[in-house]
């Protein structure tokens, strides 16, 4: 039985998906201009990552391994994630229009979010159990949201700051990310 707390803390802080593993950088810079949209994106990612972890684990363990087609994992995982996101979008649109308004526009972006695919691959690579995978997926989502929120907070303030022209917008955002990553390095060496 793996240590679930260690998995969670690892995914949120020590090996933060965005700042340490460089996964999900496109939305990290794309939707971090406003805190409200960062939060919406964050929740959508947490939900999709948790479910995708469970689904891909089940498919890997009960389909790919018994039929000895482990090499099909990249194809299956990405298809499953894309299908799941598409279905989710349809269900939410039909049953909960207000939720759709809040999260809907972020869902299509998630298909190509490498963080979701990344967590699915890491789960099988690290040989986590079903529960371990779900915890890992959920925590990785939390870690992603945390980084996204911190970043959007910084960028909202940067709007008001007097930044040299060559550094405006993205370069300064990258510098902020560097400092954030440096701060997260302080978690290095935490061991549970």
């Amino acid at each position: 039985m793996e240590n679930l707390l260690a998995i969670a803390v690892g995914a949120i802080f020590v090996n933060n998906f965005v700042l340490f593993r460089f996964l999900g950088l496109c939305p990290f810079f794309g939707v971090s201009k406003k805190t409200s949209s960062a939060l919406g994106m964050g929740f959508a990612v947490i939900f999709v990552m948790t479910c995708a972890s469970a689904i891909t684990w089940l498919i890997y363990t009960y389909l790919l391994i018994p039929f000895e087609i482990k090499f099909m994992r990249t194809v299956t995982f990405i298809l499953v994630i894309a299908t799941f996101v598409q279905l989710l979008e349809m269900v939410i649109r039909k049953h909960n229009p207000s939720l759709y308004k809040a999260l809907g526009i972020y869902l299509p972006l998630i298909t190509t979010n490498c963080a979701v695919m990344g967590v699915a691959l890491l789960n099988v690579e690290e040989e986590y159990s079903l529960i371990g995978s779900v915890v890992n997926g959920f925590s990785a989502g939390i870690g992603f949201t945390l980084a996204l929120l911190l970043m959007s907070g910084i960028r909202e303030r940067l709007e008001l700051a007097d930044v040299p022209r060559s550094f405006e917008d993205l370069p300064i955002a990258f510098i902020s990310a560097a400092l954030l990553a440096l701060a997260f390095m302080a978690f290095s060496g935490m061991r549970l």
Partner: peptide, 15 residues
């Protein structure tokens, strides 16, 4: 380490 990666791309883009 990760900070170095962000720093490098920031400076290249600024240039």
């Amino acid at each position: 380490l990760p900070p170095g990666a962000f720093l490098t791309i920031a400076i290249i883009m600024a240039l």
